[in-house]
Computed example of a mutant assay.
Amino acid sequence: MAVKSVFRFVDYRIIAHPDSEPTYAAQCLNPDCTWTLAPTADGEQADVDCMTHRADTGHGIFSRSYQQVAVVVPAR
């Protein structure tokens, strides 16, 4: 018995979901500090907030995160 298969190969791309905004968050990594930046859509303000924390405390090492909702669509 012969088996015949047809595979359709499709190229895909990944893009930001059009109905979402990216979010930025940060946390000070100084061992004695509990400062965190709640997720915000304003990336420039997130940077300013980290710089302000540095100016106020001298703490200069942060963990920063960027999160985005993405969607995979066929490439055209």
Rank of each mutant, 00 (worst) to 15 (best):
I61S: 10
G43A: 15
A75T: 13
Y12K: 10
P18L: 11
H53S: 04
C28T: 09
D32A: 10
S63E: 04
R76T: 12
P22N: 12
H59S: 00
T36P: 01
C33M: 00
S63T: 04
T57N: 03
V48P: 00
R13L: 08
V10K: 15
V71K: 08
A16E: 13
A16K: 12
L37A: 05
R64C: 08
C50I: 10
V6E: 08
C28A: 06
L29N: 09
E44A: 05
V71H: 01
L29P: 02
A46K: 02
R13M: 09
I15R: 13
F9A: 13
A16S: 09
G60K: 10
F7P: 08
Q27T: 04
I61Y: 06
E21S: 04
P39N: 13
A2P: 11
A16Y: 05
F62V: 11
P31R: 03
D42P: 10
A38G: 11
A70N: 05
G43L: 15
P31K: 05
P74N: 09
A70H: 05
W35Y: 04
P31G: 01
V10P: 08
I61T: 09
T23C: 02
M51L: 11
E21L: 10
F62S: 07
F9Y: 08
C28F: 06
A41L: 02
H59C: 03
R13Y: 02
F7G: 12
A2W: 07
Q45A: 15
D47Y: 02
D19I: 02
D49G: 00
R54V: 00
R64H: 00
V69E: 02
C28H: 06
A55W: 04
A38C: 14
F62P: 06
Q45H: 14
V3M: 07
P18Q: 13
V69L: 03
V6Y: 09
R54H: 01
A16W: 03
I61E: 07
D56E: 13
A38Q: 15
D19V: 04
T40K: 02
Q67N: 03
L29F: 00
T34C: 07
C50G: 02
P39H: 12
